[in-house]
Design a protein around this nucleic acid. Structure first.
Length: 496
DNA sequence: ATAGGGTTAG
């Protein structure tokens, strides 16, 4: 392994590919066994410090691979204590194993996401000693700093990257601009860009990032102005540029401007693509302009633009929410035939629509189809089903589904707990409702004010005073937990 | 992560 560390001509070695080929071929079944074991240890007890994780893993004799490490890190992406404890444990106890650069990058991202910035910087420094810091690493650092509202720190980080051996070039600048825009600060991105554009030459991507940032911030005048700047700098607006603008007009439901922009791009020799059409069609569908939306579908076919899975998903959503479940299902069949296979979103959309229309058998048969086609369900697959069960008082089915979720390791989020507590409360299942309220508090979630009041009111009406007192105490406890910062309601947020 | 998808509550 050591020979890889200072590979000549490559200051950043040790990616998981070379690491794997250098050790032993990956044995899938062993990776799975070890994953299950580690997963159990790291999940079973409440681990609140890195030391506790070390103790929990003590005596655990397994050989790790980069593949396994990354799998565990991804599994515990929302639980930095377990992830970081495990990461450190591997580094200190596995004498013939060294973390590869992408494991480091993943760990940096997890720490940044949980706002553990001291630990994050410590890790980056450690990586620096081994020459493992890349632009990918620093992108994660800048993105997480921006995400925490530390825009100044993100910009400072950019100015410091030369000390780490990275270049302050166009690519690095684009990364910072994108993180600033994506974290809701197009203005800071613009100011930064004006400061550095004399020393770092922008490219077309630079302008597209800024234009997209303005569009998302609903500052269309700024977006148009930036497009002029782009032209003056001798870059030609492309399909991405126009699609950003079209999306912004869609958000305003300004379909006149959408059509004008479609014409504008075409007359500039730029054709809309499947993404452009998806955005327009979806937004018409949401505005209940179903006929207009379907016209976009026709237009796209006429233009010879090929639909993909995402496009079909939108179409299914529009048909389903318009009550045309049958048509939605025939689109689903069509997807199998022409090379855009359904994915988890396709199924979720169809199941949700079937539930809304109380087509229980259809919904359950789709769930079964997912299993058959090894498409992994997620929490969004189940929440419409659970909601349906509450609404139609299908208690047995409800518990069957909850058990099924448990088996598949799908944990219930705040939104789903809310749906259960409120749904059961509304339909007279007060004791079950209380029990889910208790579970959500014990999991560290803070119930919405609305949920709490709804439940209290109903308990009062039924004169269930004992239960009422318990709920009041639980709510106080949830609020207390929050203010002491011990537990947080976890934001759903994917690692990327 | 230079552009697109579904979802709670009211």
């Amino acid at each position: 392994m050591d020979i890889l560390k200072d590979k000549p001509g490559s200051w950043r070695g040790r990616d998981s590919e070379s690491a794997q080929s250098n050790v032993v071929p990956v044995d899938e079944s062993r990776v799975n066994d070890n994953f299950d074991l580690l997963n159990t240890i790291l999940t079973s007890s409440k681990l609140t410090s890195v030391e506790e994780v070390f103790r929990a893993l003590d005596g655990c004799s397994i050989s790790v691979s980069a593949h396994l490490v990354n799998k565990i890190l991804r599994r515990f992406a929302n639980d930095w204590v377990s992830a970081y404890g495990f990461f450190k444990w591997v580094a200190t106890t596995q004498s013939c194993y060294e973390h590869c650069s992408d494991s480091f990058d993943l760990m940096v991202d997890i720490l940044g996401k949980s706002k553990q910035f001291d630990a994050m910087w410590g890790l980056v420094e450690e990586m620096g000693h081994e020459k493992l810091v890349s632009l990918a690493t620093m992108s994660k650092v800048m993105r997480r700093l921006s995400g925490a509202g530390r825009w100044k720190d993100a910009i400072e980080t950019f100015h410091k990257i030369e000390k780490i051996g990275l270049e302050k070039d166009t690519m690095a600048m684009n990364v910072l601009l994108d993180t600033l825009c994506k974290e809701r600060s197009a203005m800071r991105a613009r100011d930064f860009f004006f400061e550095v554009r004399e020393s770092i030459p922008p490219d077309a991507t630079t302008f597209n990032i800024l234009i997209h940032g303005w569009c998302k911030a609903r500052k269309l005048e700024e977006a148009r102005w930036t497009m002029e700047d782009m032209r003056e700098s001798r870059f030609i607006p492309c399909v991405i540029t126009y699609t950003s603008l079209i999306e912004a007009y869609c958000m305003d439901k300004n379909f006149r401007a959408v059509n004008a922009t479609l014409e504008e791009m075409k007359s500039n020799g730029c054709s809309p693509n499947v993404i452009t059409y998806t955005i327009v069609m979806h937004s018409l569908g949401k505005a209940k302009e179903t006929q207009e939306a379907l016209r976009v579908y026709e237009m796209m076919k006429r233009d010879g633009c090929v639909p993909d899975t995402s496009f079909y998903n939108s179409l299914i959503y529009i048909l389903g929410s318009g009550g045309q479940l049958r048509d939605a299902l025939s689109i689903y069949e069509e997807m199998h035939r022409n090379g855009s296979p359904p994915n988890v979103i396709t199924y979720n959309t169809l199941i949700s629509s079937a539930c809304v229309h109380s087509q229980e058998e259809k919904a359950l048969s789709l769930l079964l189809k997912m299993e058959e086609s090894s498409c992994k369900p997620d929490i969004r697959t189940y929440s419409p089903l659970l909601k349906y069960c509450c609404r139609r008082k299908r208690t047995q089915l409800l518990y069957f589904l909850l058990g099924d979720m448990l088996k598949k390791d799908i944990s219930i989020d705040l939104g789903t707990y809310t749906l259960l507590v409120q749904g059961l409360c509304r339909n007279g299942k007060l004791h079950q409702s209380c029990s889910f309220f208790e579970k959500m508090v014990l999991k560290g979630f803070i119930p919405w004010e609305h949920t709490y009041e709804m439940l209290l009111k109903e308990l009062e009406r039924k004169k269930l005073n004992e239960e009422k007192e318990i709920i009041i105490k639980l709510m106080a406890r949830a609020v207390e937990q929050n203010s002491s910062g011990y537990h947080y309601a976890r934001k759903k947020n994917q690692t990327g």
